[in-house]
Simulated scan of single mutants.
Amino acid sequence: MPLDTQNIHAAIVDLDGTMVDTLGDFAAALNGMLADLGLPPIEASAIEPMVGKGSEYLLHSVLKHVLAQVSPAQAAINNEALYAQAWDRYQHHYLAINGQFSSVYPGVVEGLQAMQQRGWKLACLTNKPTAFALPLLQAKGLDGFFSQVFGGDAFERKKPDPLPLLKTCAALGTLPQHTLMLGDSRNDAQAARAAGCPVLLVTYGYNHGEPVSAVDTDGLLDSLASL
Rank of each mutant, 00 (worst) to 15 (best):
S102D: 07
L137V: 08
A75R: 01
L136D: 06
Q100H: 15
T126P: 08
Q74E: 13
L95C: 03
A123G: 10
G99Q: 04
L95A: 05
L112Y: 08
T130Q: 12
Q74I: 07
E110L: 03
S102A: 15
T130L: 10
T130F: 08
V70Y: 07
A75P: 00
G119S: 11
A123R: 06
F132M: 07
A73V: 12
P106C: 05
P129K: 04
Q74S: 13
N79T: 03
A96L: 09
V104A: 06
A75L: 05
L136C: 06
L82R: 02
G107M: 09
A81L: 08
P135G: 01
Q74V: 04
S103I: 14
N127E: 07
L95N: 02
C124A: 13
F101I: 09
Q116C: 12
L125C: 09
S71W: 05
N98A: 13
V109A: 10
P72K: 04
N78P: 09
Y83F: 14
L137D: 02
C124K: 03
N98V: 12
Y90D: 00
H93S: 02
V108C: 02
V70N: 01
V104H: 06
L122C: 02
L82Y: 00
V109E: 12
W120H: 14
A73E: 15
Q116P: 01
L125H: 14
W87N: 11
I77K: 08
A114R: 10
A123H: 07
Q100L: 12
P135D: 02
M115E: 12
L95T: 10
K121C: 12
H93F: 08
N79E: 07
Q116H: 14
Q91D: 07
G107A: 07
V109I: 13
P72C: 00
V108I: 15
A123K: 12
P72A: 00
A73I: 04
